[in-house]
């Protein structure tokens, strides 16, 4: 019963943030204006609404993937970028910006493909490492793959045309939803939704991964296969949203921690709670990014600025609940 109340509370908070965000912006819109001015309704429905929905989807994908990966790797510090996925996606997008200018579809496809490729390399690499347990090996391989791809991004940055390509690249690497419209939302929806729904369906079984592997096995589940499945769906969701929004850090890390504070350690509750909290938090961050100053602040900058202190706060109060 108390859990239901808490779920209702965070859902109400999400709806509140959604409505507030819809009426916040550089161009002030009120109800009378909405009825009388074509521009006001254009801005509300074709600029703000798709962008808020995109932010919600971005937050959901990152938070759900973060929660699932943290359980799958029994490590509270895991987030999508740890397995090289974010840097791989960034490399893919940078490559496309450099060679296939003006084609959003190519940029987003290349980003998704390289995100998955990074994970594949990390996975294959981990099996040949001779150090630590399975999980540590995968994390180590992920760090190495991340470093290689971020080196690649560095090379592309030096090759980019400083007047034309570099600003676009830099803004993309800092992450953001400026200019995200209905088209971008529709583009990332299928893959992201596929990943999110799969994680939601797997939420009961993800709990098994937090047990020792031999215990999981004795309960009739192959932990290796289950872990692989969870990781693939998490990456799918992250790669899809990263291809549009760029590299957004911290949200995938802190939201599951907040969810655990409110709902305890059970993944069957943490995954849905992370979806709601992730959506709300990302809408709030993006609203700050687009309203605070006349020029857009990159969303990745806002999430890092706000995310890191929140993370420290969560850790410093770790023992209480």
């Amino acid at each position: 019963m108390r859990l239901l109340v808490r779920f209702l509370a965070i859902t109400a908070a999400l709806l509140g943030i959604f409505c507030l965000s819809l009426f916040l912006g550089r161009y002030s819109v009120n109800f009378q204006e909405l009825l009388s001015s074509g521009l006001a309704s254009e801005i509300l429905f074709n600029i703000r609404l798709p962008r808020i929905l995109a932010a919600a989807l971005l937050g959901m994908a990152l938070a759900a993937a973060g929660a699932a990966l943290q359980s799958a790797f029994k490590n509270p510090l895991v987030e999508p970028s740890l397995l090289g996925v974010s840097q791989g996606s960034a490399f893919g997008a940078a490559l496309a910006i450099l060679f296939f200018v003006n084609s959003p579809v190519v940029i987003e496809a290349s980003s998704t493909a390289f995100g998955l490729l990074a994970l594949l390399i990390a996975y294959l690499l981990s099996s040949s490492l001779k150090y630590g347990g399975k999980i540590l090996r995968l994390v180590l391989a992920g760090i190495a793959v991340s470093a290689i791809f971020s080196g690649g991004v560095g090379i592309i940055k030096t090759m980019a045309d400083p007047l034309n390509q570099l600003p676009a690249l830099t803004f993309w690497l800092l992450g953001g939803l400026s200019g995200a419209g209905w088209g971008d939302l529709l583009y990332m929806l299928p893959l992201a939704l596929c990943g999110i729904v799969a994680l939601l369906l797997l939420r009961w079984r993800i709990n098994l991964l937090t047990l020792r592997d031999d215990v999981t096995f004795s309960l009739g589940t192959d932990p290796g296969k289950l872990r692989a499945l969870v990781v693939i769906f998490a990456v799918l969701a992250v790669a899809a949203v990263t291809s549009v929004a760029g590299v957004i850090a911290w949200v995938g890390l802190i939201v599951p921690h907040i969810a655990r504070k409110i709902f305890g350690a059970d993944n069957s509750r943490i995954i849905p709670a992370s979806l709601i909290l992730g959506a709300g938090l990302m809408i709030a961050f993006d609203t700050v990014a687009r309203t605070l100053t006349a020029g857009e602040i990159p969303l990745g900058v806002v999430t890092s600025l706000c995310g890191a202190p929140v993370f420290l706060l969560l850790l410093s109060r770790g023992g209480e609940s």
């Binding site: 912006g25 550089r26 161009y27 002030s28 521009l39 801005i43 600029i47 703000r48 200018v101 003006n102 007047l163 034309n164 600003p167 803004f171 953001g176 400026s178 200019g179 687009r290 100053t293 006349a294 020029g295 857009e296």
Partner: peptide, 30 residues
Amino acid sequence: LGGTGWNTVSFEQIAAWNPEIIFLVTYSQN
């Protein structure tokens, strides 16, 4: 907008400014 360099601005911001004259550059053929 402070300082030097290009600042990304949203359509919303442009609408709020409601310019009477707009000059366009793309530095590009496409």
